[in-house]
Write a protein that binds this DNA or RNA. Structure first.
Lengths: 183, 183
DNA sequence: CAAAGCATGTAAGCAGTTACATGATTGT
DNA sequence: ACAATCATGTAACTGCTTACATGCTTTG
């Protein structure tokens, strides 16, 4: 699995330029590659070299030529093959949990302020996700099946952040009960 | 965050060889680097070069020399600095969800068998995690605080897989309701 | 006699991130 | 005047994964 498959996925809707794809990735909750603008252009060049996307160059006056990418049959086959591939388990690597696992070197107060900081970023993320999910995705009207699947995926993502927040809050309470602050 | 911090974490318990660290990573649910045996040896060399771990070479007859690594004050400082660093949000990149998002090219039956395959691997993973969590970690007896934190982290991991399984099952049901199979 | 355990590493490659680089047009 | 939008890319780096490489000892 790499960003190239997701690019093929978007192109299976309709042709896009690299710039448009960049925005699609940035706007979607579920495809949160961070350093996209770079990776997308590179991936498109690769995909084109491999014959999995076609390129239509549209010269513009005084602006760089738009390169509109579409998905030819070979690309659709590659996409389909990937869709049918063995599902991978989610990674679930939470770097904060690893940080926490070694927090024995911190005092109770330091640990609590670390947890508080995590709670703050989680809260912000949860709010942002919920807001974006509420506004709905900018996806073109597709089949009821696809709409259902996409909604479920987005809901799961929001739910995951909310679960992490609940977990964190309950952990903080248990820690407080374990060693109550001298007040 | 990288594997080097987790190595420093383990060494903060007591000295270990690369081989032992490899097993610790392999045995723990929460630190699931896959290609460790390689990365660990390389990271130890780096850490040693940077003065963050110390190395005691113990020659053996007819076996490669054991290299026992310990954590000097500089390493403890680095560990502490990392512990106090800004918490990172969990990544939540689920490559199966991305696969699913583009499954429009699949028939109802193909989609369902994909979901079924995912359910199988998730079930296996959940069982494996639960079993391992039940057996408890091989960690040396530490403070009540550390024990609580470690248990919570492991429980969260199992819970995450279980949630994913619940989510998947409910999605399958909804999809079945949407387009009932011609039986 | 084969498999698992002990014990170390190297090399090649991929995916993703950050930073750098250019430059016109449109909106506030 | 400044920021945002349009539009493309390159280079360097980090972290992780896969495959390769060696060789002895203990257990089944």
């Amino acid at each position: 699995m790499s960003i190239r498959h997701a690019i093929l996925g978007f192109l299976s809707w309709k042709p896009f330029t690299g710039y448009e794809l960049k925005k699609l990735f940035a706007d979607s909750l579920s495809f949160h590659w961070t350093g996209n603008n770079n990776q997308i252009y590179g991936s498109l060049i690769q995909l084109h070299r491999d014959g999995l996307v076609s390129q239509e160059v549209q010269p513009q006056e005084k602006l760089p030529a738009r390169k509109l990418y579409a998905i030819p049959p070979a690309g659709r086959e590659e996409l389909r093959a990937w869709l049918l591939a063995e599902p991978e388990l989610p990674q679930l690597r939470n770097s904060f949990h690893i940080q926490l696992a070694w927090a024995e070197a911190l005092s109770d107060r330091e640990l609590d302020s670390l947890l508080e900081a995590y709670e703050r970023v989680l809260e912000a993320q949860t709010l942002m996700c919920r807001e974006r999910a509420r506004r709905g995705l900018a996806a073109p009207g597709r089949s009821p099946r696809e709409i259902l699947v996409w909604r479920r995926i987005e809901e799961k993502r929001v739910g995951d952040y909310e679960d992490e927040l609940d977990w964190l809050r309950s952990l903080r309470e248990d820690l407080k009960a374990l060693s109550p602050e001298p007040s």
